[in-house]
Every structure is written in structure tokens, then in C-alpha cells.
């Protein structure tokens, strides 16, 4: 089960802000699927520090798909 969040074309820090809001609503066992126009390197630090794992797929130079999920505590 996954939820889709499309933040392509938004200026900083809106993508980050929306992704964080979406992770607040993300239940255990589900994944958040994010479409974004650049690789959000600072987000990875935040995810690791807040108990989330992620997998990134680069679909083109201007499109990344990131799957975010809770890590088992």
C-alpha cells in the first residue's frame, strides 16, 4: 500500500515541508511515494534521524521517485 505525493516544481522548502507533513500521516506498514524534480539530499538525513527508511529511483535528470517507510523500532 502506498500514498503518492507529487512535489515537482515547488520552490524550497515546500517539497520538504509537504513530505514531512505526509510522513506525520503515514501509518506503519505503508509507504509514501514521492515524485520530486531533484534529489533531496538533506531530506535523507531527516528521515534517518526520525525513524524512516527510503529508497530512491532516479527516473530522469529531473525526476526522482522516493519510497519512504517507517523503520521497525
Amino acid at each position: 500500500m502506498s500514498r503518492l505525493l507529487d512535489v515537482r516544481g515547488l520552490p524550497p522548502c515546500e517539497p520538504f515541508d509537504r513530505i514531512l507533513a505526509a510522513t506525520d500521516e503515514l501509518p506503519f506498514g505503508e509507504a509514501l511515494e514521492v515524485l520530486i524534480h531533484r534529489e533531496p539530499l538533506p531530506l535523507y538525513e531527516w528521515l534517518a534521524e526520525h525513524g524512516f527508511g527510503h529508497r530512491t529511483v532516479q527516473e530522469s535528470s529531473e525526476q526522482f521517485r522516493i519510497f519512504i517507510h517507517h523503520l521497525p523500532s
Binding site: M1, S2, R3, L4, L5, D6, V7, A22, D24, E25, L26, P27, F28, G29, E30, L35, G51, H70
Partner: peptide, 20 residues
């Protein structure tokens, strides 16, 4: 720290939601 949301009940799965 805020508590993370629990998983949904198995008999009531959350639909795939577009929140873009």
C-alpha cells in the same frame, strides 16, 4: 516526541491516496 501513527486495521485497508 510525537508518536507515529499505528498501522490501519487489516480489514479496513487505507486506499491509495493522491495528496499532490
Amino acid at each position: 516526541a510525537a508518536s507515529p501513527r499505528a498501522a490501519p486495521e487489516p480489514d479496513c485497508p487505507a486506499p491509495k491516496v493522491a495528496i499532490a
